[in-house]
Design a protein around this nucleic acid. Structure first.
Lengths: 347, 347
DNA sequence: TTGAAAGCGCTAACAG
DNA sequence: CTGTTAGCGCTTTCAA
């Protein structure tokens, strides 16, 4: 196990002082004389002393990690959030441990057990699609672990949250389609049970209503937001007597499915069909035509979440307020929905 | 801080036994009577007892985490590797902590410090582009932390490694292009300093030589493997008197750059120019035409890395052999390089 | 300003 | 089979 690591005792012995003095000197405790502090710090540096965080954690009864639980880490949005968190956390003395749920309730429960066992200070999570009860989450709270949701929140649970304004994102998308002259705009929606999808639905309805367009119920097609879901939604829509002139999808993969199906049918985008997605997946910029979508500021979201975690780790008594932060989404206009030349394109 | 967590002492007191007995019963120690074990375990379950891993770690002098250091977690390849690791690790009692280097040497040093301070059992890493010395890595080894490289390895460092056979991947790609009838195949290469890129270069040369084609030095164009690099490589190639009929890129983003530049010039793929990339980024399947590429089995790689970590955590004396595992890459043939109908397409 | 001592929760000799 | 004891490395009263 290599050369033994140096502890405060080693330093104490060499300086003929008590370990507690070293401990204090190392944290710049004001009641230790300056020369003493200097001496200790110098020796610590010389020996490349590293405080044993494990011991500190045990002593303090609180670890130095925050946990993040996501459905899948290899989803662009999630990995960007995690990336942002790591960036902020690494400069804040906290480590980041991660768990995936693979969209399964069972794995979500396991992930929470892991977090509790790891004695994390805080958990940041986006709940899985399958989850519809919250006893496992209550467990977290019972153990005094701060919880922050992002993206997919669980309604009715007392926790902080960072979200984007999904309603607004959808509203902006649909407004944009309307501005371009589209009228018969179909919404390919996700499960109503998930609040982000429900909010996007509301934004869609709001924009349509505002434009004086009455939305027949079958203009909203609920599908899993994957490529196949998009293809199938396109089928459904095109088999109607009154064909849509645009489709607003609650997810980029569904939008891609629509795009592929539409091209197979020989439709031109944006001329024959306008199309927008949601999430700003990288591929939306690369496909032909590039797909208009909504950016969710994933990195920024991660940084904010991390800051909230750091703040709660540093305060003594856990504050009882559950901070909610709502970020403004950004509409990224691309060719798939651009009938009129507006010059206001972005990447 | 919520209700106090139950410890082995609480259980011991209630059963009028010693804490050590409880500790042993909990780990199914054979020298504890069955009824005793049962009784302890029952009570532990009743109280929802959770062993304090922090205390265990302190006692054992060894933590229960493994660390992973990658350039960026939001790169598809890396997040898939991490995803695979998490999957395996979560069922093995080990937590996963992550750090990013953002391709910077400075951040890589910091990440390693973090890992040392966190007392991880093992570190899995892919070195950053900037890194060209290994003192920080030596530090890791000095602290007795097992190290495993993947993808971008550091030559000359004693460590385990999991890689794909990059030479073979390149060879298969170029062989495929040759089979399709392409002859003047340009290689858009990454930095020779990075072994994976160097190996891909070798695979390219091998396939070409084998086909009896002599490769002029300027058929290899070294560029950063990003979209702009690909565009610029395309420019360079097309400004030559003898134009290429295909391009093999060491990275998918470069291939995308080539694709975009080629389409802008009105070239048809695969008819006027064959194209292949490397990494199987998701977008390669979605662009028009879909790009032939090489899959690196990222998830599998992560699972193997995790298993190696688990194995090394469980053995008493650190074994001194540095296991190298080489995975076979898989050629994913798509339209961008498919002149002849072979029926052997895959997604 | 510094030291002594206790203890966070757990494990592992060593006894019995 | 079970108990006693010591201690992992650190922080933090309390006392000097």
């Amino acid at each position: 196990m290599s050369k033994k690591r140096v502890t405060i005792h080693d330093i104490a012995k060499e300086l003929n002082v008590a370990a507690s003095t070293v401990s204090r000197a190392l944290q710049d405790h004001p009641r230790i004389s300056l020369p003493m502090r200097k001496a200790v710090q110098k020796l610590a540096a010389k020996y490349d002393y590293r405080p044993n965080h494990i011991a500190t954690s045990l002593r303090r009864g609180r670890g130095n990690t925050v946990g993040v639980i996501v459905p899948r880490i290899n989803r662009n949005f999630f990995s960007n959030v995690i990336g942002g968190m790591e960036e902020e956390l690494s400069s804040g003395e906290q480590n980041l441990i991660i768990c995936q749920t693979r969209e399964r309730y069972r794995d979500e429960v396991a992930a929470i057990q892991t977090m509790i066992n790891a004695r994390v200070n805080a958990v940041v999570m986006s709940i899985s699609i399958e989850t519809n009860k919250s006893d496992h989450i209550d467990l977290l709270l019972e153990h005094g672990i701060k919880l922050y949701f992002f993206d997919r929140v669980m309604e009715g649970v007392e926790a902080g949250a960072v979200m984007i304004d999904d309603r607004l994102g959808a509203y902006l998308s649909v407004r944009h389609l309307l501005d371009q002259g589209y009228r018969k705009i179909i919404h390919v929606a996700g499960s109503k049970r998930i609040s982000i999808y429900d909010n996007r639905r509301k934004g869609y309805l709001e924009a349509m209503t505002e434009a004086g367009i009455e939305v027949p119920p079958d203009w909203i097609i609920e599908k899993p937001l994957v490529i196949e879901g998009g293809e199938s939604a396109f089928e459904t829509a095109m088999n109607r007597s009154e064909k849509p002139d645009a489709m607003f999808c609650s997810g980029d993969f569904a939008a891609l499915g629509v795009l592929q199906a539409a091209r197979k049918k020989g439709l031109r985008l944006p001329e024959d069909l306008g199309l927008t997605g949601f999430a700003n997946e990288p591929f939306t910029a690369f496909v032909e035509p590039p797909i208009t979508t909504v950016d969710q500021h994933a990195g920024e979201m991660g940084r904010i979440l991390a800051k909230m975690c750091l703040a709660c780790c540093n305060e003594e008594e856990p504050s009882e307020d559950f901070e909610k932060i709502v970020l403004k989404p950004e509409l990224i206009v691309r060719k798939s929905s651009l009938l009129k030349e507006s010059g206001k394109t972005s990447q």
